[in-house]
Design a protein around this nucleic acid. Structure first.
Length: 233
DNA sequence: GTCCGGCCGA
DNA sequence: TCGGCTGGAC
């Protein structure tokens, strides 16, 4: 398929920063605020970020509720709990054995390098925090950025499959663009603003779930006027 | 049957 | 780049 990527310097086109802000406004207008992250404590956000990998959030909610019921929603308690107990509690979150290992891997780093204190970890600078998180087996780029933004409250833009699909259909990136390229598109064209990054990612998820699906519902789409996709089926 | 707020190792 | 992980909602 031919690339839909627009020429960055084509005439009459608004600048990228203006384009990204405009998309944000349209999404916010269409869907309203999303109130992310739906977790209470920073630790719960970390747990949710790992559990939600490739899984519907409704499943994650069940898993989190089970951890809370078992009084394990804090680093010290969860670190002490046997692996198979954790796995069985988070079963609704799918890939439960793998994810129990991931939680343990994170807790090991937290314990060994930060005295088990999340606030100590989050005191690192954004780049240091990011590489620290990426050093944990089971935490990749998206999960790391979600933790940085929604748990640590630092401005790292979160990119996911929805973001990639929506931006490629809009013609702003190639559909095979790498994670870092997409993240840079936002971070080099928007001010490092935590509430903005928070809401923007949440809105993209909402839009991708509800409308810009694999088979998109373009009729009445709030972004249709600036999208390169509607001329296809 | 499809679709989920990915990541790792081969 | 591709298969494995592997439950629940619609």
């Amino acid at each position: 398929m031919a690339s839909r990527k627009r020429s960055p310097d084509s005439c009459g086109e608004s600048s990228l920063p203006a384009e990204l802000r405009s998309i944000y406004r349209l999404l916010l207008q269409a869907y309203g605020r999303q109130h992310w992250w739906p977790g209470t404590s920073p630790f719960e956000v970390v747990v949710g970020a790992i559990l939600t990998q490739r899984v519907a959030w409704s499943n994650v909610e069940r898993a989190i509720a089970r951890l809370k019921d078992a009084q394990l929603m804090d680093p010290a308690s969860l670190a002490k709990a046997p692996l198979d107990q954790v796995a069985s509690l988070i079963r609704p979150a799918v890939y439960y054995n793998a994810k129990a290992e991931k939680l343990k891997a994170f807790l090991n780093v937290l314990s060994e390098r930060h005295g088990g204190d999340l606030a100590h970890l989050f005191r690192l600078s954004l780049p240091s925090l990011r590489s620290e998180l990426l050093s944990v087996r089971g935490i990749g780029e998206e999960t790391a950025d979600a933790i940085i933004l929604y748990a640590a409250g630092k401005p790292s833009f979160v990119v996911d499959a929805y973001t990639r699909r929506i931006l490629s259909r809009l013609g702003l990136i190639d559909e095979k663009a790498r994670y870092e390229e997409i993240r840079a598109l936002f971070m080099e064209n928007l001010r490092p603003d935590v509430p903005l990054y928070n809401e923007y990612h949440a809105l993209l998820v909402r839009h991708g779930k509800e409308r810009c699906r694999p088979r998109p519902a373009c009729e009445g789409c709030p972004l249709r006027a600036r999208c390169a996709f509607p001329d296809a089926p």
